[in-house]
Every structure is written in C-alpha cells, then in structure tokens.
Design a protein around this nucleic acid. Structure first.
Lengths: 208, 208
DNA sequence: GGGAACATTCATACCGGTTGGTATGTTCCT
DNA sequence: AGGAACATACCAACCGGTATGAATGTTCCC
C-alpha cells in the first residue's frame, strides 16, 4: 500500500494544509468568536505560517466563511439534516436525536456553546455575508423539521391544527435557546432539563 | 425649590458623568459586544476623555460589569420582574407582556438582538465575573416565572402535572431563542411568529 | 471669615502590545 | 524553466491602560 497515484500526494498536500487550517480556525472561532479569533493562535496550533494561510484564504473573513460552509454546515447536515431527510419516519429520527443529545451531552460540550448559535449572535448584524450563510443553514434546518412535521400530519401522527412552519421555527429557536441557557449555567444538566421540555412540546403536537 | 442640601450639587455632578458613560457604554456594547466595544467610541459619543472614564471605572471589565448590573438588570426588573412579582395574577401579566412584545417589536429592535442574550453568548465562558452576574439575572427571571406558575397551580390555572421549575427554565431559554432567531432573520415578524408559539406552549400548561 | 491643605474631577499625551495584512524570498514538484 | 506552496520579515493601525497635571471644589484650622 505504499504506491499511490501520481497526483495524490500533491493534491493531498494542498487540501491537507487547507483542511488543517480550516479545523484549527473552527476551534479558535468556537473558543473566542470570530472577531476575537487570533490568526496568530491558529498558526501556532498548526505550526504553519501566515504565508500558508493567506495562500489558501484571501482574508480572515473568507476563512471564517469557509469554516461556516465547510465545517459547521457539513457537521449539522451529517448529524441531523441528512438522517431527517432520508428517513420515512422523520419524527422518530428527530425525537431519537433529541434523546441522544439529552443523554450524551457533557459539561465540556456545553462550555463553549453551540458553534452555530455563537456565530449567529456575534456576526448576524455585523456582516451580511456571515448572516446570509448562517441563515441559510438555519433555513435548511427549519425546512427539514417542517417537512418532518408535515409528513407526520399525513401519517396522522401530528395534529392537523399545527402550523408546521411556525412550529419548526420555534423548535429551532428553542433548541438554540437551550444551548444558550446551558452555556451560561455551564451545565449539561441544564441542557437536559431544557431539551426535555422541548421534547414535551413536540410530543404535545401529537394526538393523545 | 431653589434650596438643596449642601452635598447634592456635587453628588449630582459626579453621578451625571458616570451615568452618561454607563449608557454610552451600554449602547456600544449592545452594538459590538463587550470585547469589540471600543473605549474610544464611547468617549467620542460622550465628548469625554479617558481620564474621566478611568476615574469612574477602574477598568474596561468593571465598566462592562456595571452596565450589566445597573443598566441591563435594572431594565429587565423594571419591565418584567417587578410587575410579575407585584401582581396577584402573574400569569396574566406574563401573557400580557408576551403580547406586548409580539405587537410592539420592530425590525430596529430586533437588529442588534437582546442585550442580555448577546452578552451571555459572548462572555459566559470567557469571564467568570460576567458569567456570575448574567446568570444571576437569568436566575431571577426564571425564579419569577416559576413563582408565577406555582401560584397559577394553586389557583387551578396551571396543570398540577407541570414541573414549574423546568418549565420556567424552558420559557426563559425559548424566549432568548426567539430573540436569536429574529436577530439572524433581521425580522420582527420572525420574532412574532416564534413568540406566538412560545405563548401557545404556556397556554398548553393550562387546563382545557 | 479667610486662607492653607487636601480631594475630586477631568484633559493631554503617551506607552507597550497585538492585530490583520503584505511584500519578498525560498523550496520543490512537474 | 516555471509555477504552486509555503516561509520570513515587516508594517501601519489600533487597542486598553497609565502617568502627569490642570482646574475645581471641599474641608478645616487659625
């Protein structure tokens, strides 16, 4: 397995440093927000230099936008949106995912808060480009949940009186609200309590 | 009414500049967050100088903490907590306040987000002093709502099966979540939709 | 009551440190 | 040879914070 195709090493080298920078930036941004994220720290963590960074990304803003598109959005899609969209019983997938979040969440996870929510609060009114991309992610999320609720209505598992769009909006909002409350309490237990109430709200959308 | 006590004029002069600085700082922090808040901008807005500021506040952090205690906490108490605590029909006060928020909220209000929530997301994991004071405000808020729900139970207006503490936690969380979602959409209409769903949640706690 | 002694209140000027960004190499692969 | 992929060195701007000093009261003793 020593042999590789000729083009692989170079290509791997290119995307490798890019990916390394991207994930180091994601970590730094998660810890300190975008504005306070230090280029110097990212370079220290990776052992790379400014030349390398500004070769792959034309500016700090573009680096941040790449983190949003290629790290945050990708992660959320892989964990939630794709499973929700693929399943015929999306409602079960949603409830199961909430259960998994409730049980698996740790104090360490909760400490820095939700990477998506953090950027939303920090950037959405300061930078239109950030706002557009972050909003796009949340729109996708909301749409996926609305679709799940709509299918649930067709299956008779969701009350026909429910406004699925407004309800999906609220679920996403409250979800991020749970992250926020858990963050200030620095407590996964707070997240669990809060998320359990959100689950009760969803169950309340179903017939008795 | 020309006569005043001897100590008043001096005291008024002192607290005047302090109050001016405090509210200019609150505005600047609301716009850019605490870390990115510029002392220079605050001084430009007020026409004062660094000497004046650092006479009244020993550091930028202490200025920020004063904003939390003396502006944000005070406003929330005056608008919500005091009316909630004073009324014997707290539930009606709560629902009326939600209605007022739903109707009176404008795009301009929503643009910068909730001052409290912004600081929570930005500072709670970076600065323990900020975290403690912000959490204290939210604890008070949650406790006030829990008390309202508890009294509602005694009056038979809230289902006895409701966990008032968890429910109050969720209400506060979702409330801030509505702010966040409205902020990224830059839309008061989003806030209205979201808040209306939260109101439905509260109404769901009451007997049919 | 008058004036010395002191405290408050604010302005001016400046500091060290850090920031994002750039201009110029150097290496290495095709 | 030529260009992609990086490293090195550097810059102008800005940040929060401080040192100094000038007014402006306030207190208190003679």
């Amino acid at each position: 397995m020593i042999q590789t195709t000729a083009s692989e090493p170079a290509a791997a080298a290119i995307s490798d440093t890019r990916a390394v920078l991207l994930h180091a930036a994601a970590k730094e941004i998660h810890q300190h927000g975008f504005k306070a994220a230090s280029i110097a720290t990212i370079l220290q963590d990776t052992g790379l230099t400014k030349g390398a960074l500004y070769h792959h990304f034309p500016s700090k803003q573009q680096l941040g936008l790449a983190v949003v598109d290629e790290v945050i959005a990708t992660d959320l899609a892989a964990r939630m949106l794709d499973p929700l969209r693929r399943s015929v019983d999306g409602l079960d997938v949603l409830l199961a995912y909430m259960d998994w979040r409730i049980t698996a969440m740790t104090d360490a996870d909760v400490r820095l808060g939700c990477p998506l929510n953090n950027l939303v609060q920090e950037m959405s009114h300061e930078d239109p480009e950030f706002r557009a991309r972050l909003d796009h992610i949340l729109q996708d999320w909301q749409a996926a949940i609305a679709q799940v609720l709509r299918e649930g209505q067709q299956q008779g598992r969701i009350l026909s009186t429910v406004d699925v769009d407004a309800s999906a909006l609220f679920i996403v909002s409250a979800w991020e609200g749970c992250w926020g409350m858990a963050k200030i309490r620095q407590s996964a237990e707070t997240f669990r309590l809060c998320m359990a109430q959100l689950k009760l709200y969803v169950l309340g959308l179903m017939p008795r």
